[in-house]
Design a binder for these strands. Structure first.
Length: 512
RNA sequence: GGGCCCAUAGCUCAGUGGCAGAGCGGGAGACUUUUAAUCUCUGCGUCGCAGGUUCGAUCCCUGCUGGGCCCA
């Protein structure tokens, strides 16, 4: 490893510290029993300042040095921990540090971890601070973290200088991004709150959380290319799952009436601002529910999450792609046929086959010829949704009743065999979730698999999962089911436009 | 997959066909209530990689790599 000038200087400091008998990487803290979080200590300092006659409040702080100002025989050091930051004040003198201790302190660098203890106080300018009388180095940083400089403006706003901002570096060195950009840490706290609230809601509605295979001998449940791997001893190819659907339904067939899984799907497809090769999904299935009761449930679940995950001052709203999303308002329910009629003027029920619908869409200049050529009926409708409907669905909206031929796991409507009981949820002009009254007729299911294989354009044809059909033939209750992308949901709640902002370590091409 | 754009110091960025720049950060010094501390002095680099044009290329051209944005 080639060290730059700063790093060589820090390595020299390590030697100096060791020569003075200081371990730059001690195995444990010493002040843990007195530890207070920075934000809490700052509050305590302010409170104590109201009652100057009271005895001094002591505390210990541990965290990372994020700012340092040394002036001769006094020094101010900002230390940040998981709660926030507080200023350490040190000077040479009986009420603070010895000259030797102070001299070592003033040579610390941004990024170093320390523990310090002393009395809480306010400085002359009123900043809550810890006047320290003892401190220890907990970990020395060798490389520079790109800390931003912040300047408070007279109007109270904060201007940041030289923040780490190159997206590639931020994603590749997320540890540095997290260290210097507190708002990035907040994204992942929000993400965790979303998932926690989701579990709470489902657990409270009698769902059982289960785990199903990630390595699958046959993949299915979605239209996507899989990653392939190989089990050496079995000498068998296995696929990383592209969906949980077929295994979760097996569980419901076995008599566990409500199940859900939160976990990772893998799709061997393009990497972009909205796709990562591995992403997090929620799927749930509930016996004796249908599409309509799933709509009610998912609306309640999303609103529960909004109440738990959004900050109180947000009033149940977030800003996504320039739109304000009001999560707590009732969700709109719009029949797909009506939505497409309104947005394109085409009533697709009048064009019940791919040839006539495709011709109409091209004649009206709605779609280019190659978007229609050799495409199934439902695929053409799907293109119309993508081009003319989706972007306008800002407030939470359920589009329902979808074409059968792009919905191989949804139950047909009794009055219209070309249409299935399926809905998709859209928020902020983007798709969020997908749900059906699940198909439980094994002969129909088998035929759908066969149709899908026949229609598939090339490599999107999934293998037929005979074991899944066997489970269905043994009897499967009617059920409602749902899939929802958690990365996407997190983007909507945190207002981030790219999936890379809500995944800690997004996939990038390898370096070099 | 197609189009456009970007790549220069640890960070943020300027720049020019002819000695490679600023601020921050780093080093030395001064400073016992600062907060982008201040003041004095002082370094810093494979100008993404490989070719080409040229007396001379970080700059112009081609290709490649990585990234961003838009489209499919």
């Amino acid at each position: 490893m080639e060290l730059n000038e700063v790093e060589r200087e820090r390595v020299r400091k390590l030697a100096t510290l060791r020569a003075a008998g200081i371990d730059p990487y001690p195995p444990r803290t010493e002040f843990a029993a007195e530890r207070r979080m920075a934000a809490d200590a700052a509050q305590a300092a302010l409170a104590h300042a109201q009652t100057p006659e009271a005895p001094p409040t002591t505390a210990a702080i541990m965290g990372r040095i994020v700012g340092k100002r040394v002036m001769g025989k006094a020094a101010f050091v900002h230390v940040e921990d998981g709660s926030g930051r507080i200023q350490l004040f040190a000077r040479v003198g009986e009420d603070s540090l010895t000259k030797d201790s102070f001299d070592i302190l003033k040579d610390l660098d941004l990024g170093d971890f320390v523990e310090a203890r002393g009395e809480l106080m306010l400085t002359k300018t009123g900043e809550p601070s810890l006047k320290i009388n003892d401190w220890r180095l907990l970990s020395k940083a060798i490389s520079q973290l790109p800390f931003a400089k912040e300047e408070k403006q007279p109007d109270g706003s904060v201007v940041r200088y030289s923040a780490m901002s190159d997206p590639e570096t931020r994603y590749r060195q997320r540890y540095a991004d997290l260290a210097v950009n507190p708002e990035v840490r907040e994204i992942f706290r929000t993400r965790a709150r979303i998932i926690k609230a989701m579990r709470e809601f489902l657990d409270d509605h009698d769902f059982l959380e289960v785990e199903t295979p990630i390595l699958q001998p046959v993949y299915g449940g979605a239209a996507a290319r899989p990653f392939v791997t190989h089990h050496n001893q079995l000498d068998q190819d296995l696929y990383l799952r592209i969906a949980f659907e077929l295994y979760l339904k097996r569980v419901v067939a076995g008599g566990i009436e409500r199940v859900y899984e939160i976990g990772r799907d893998f799709r061997n497809e393009g990497v972009s601002f909205k796709h990562n090769p591995e992403f997090t999904m929620l799927e749930f299935y509930a016996a004796y529910m249908d599409m309509y009761s799933v709509m009610d449930l998912i609306e309640a679940m999303i609103q529960h999450i909004a109440r738990r995950a959004l900050p109180p001052e947000a009033n149940g709203a977030s800003v996504f792609r320039g739109h304000t999303i009001h999560w707590l308002r009732p969700f709109r329910r719009w029949k797909l046929r009506d939505a497409i009629l309104e947005k394109t003027g085409v009533d697709y029920a009048l064009f019940p086959d791919a040839a006539s619908l495709g011709a109409e869409a091209v004649a009206r200049r709605l779609l280019p010829t190659d978007a229609v050529k050799d495409k199934p009926w439902g695929k053409i409708i799907d293109s119309l949704i993508g081009d003319y409907v989706e972007k306008d669905l800002v407030d939470p909206t359920f589009l329902y009743e979808y074409p059968r031929d792009i919905s191989p796991f949804a139950k047909s409507r009794p009055d219209d065999p070309n249409t299935v009981e399926r809905f998709e949820g859209f928020i902020g002009g983007a798709e969020l979730c997908n749900a059906f009254s699940e198909l439980n007729d094994p002969l129909d299911q088998e035929q759908r698999f066969l149709d899908e294989s026949a229609n598939a354009d090339g490599d999107e044809a999934n293998p037929i999962d005979e074991d899944f059909l066997r489970a269905m033939r043994l009897g499967m209750p009617p059920m409602g089911g749902l899939g929802m992308g958690i990365d996407r949901l997190t983007m909507m709640f945190t207002g981030k436009d790219t999936i890379r902002e809500v995944i800690l370590f997004p996939h990038l091409r390898r370096e070099e």
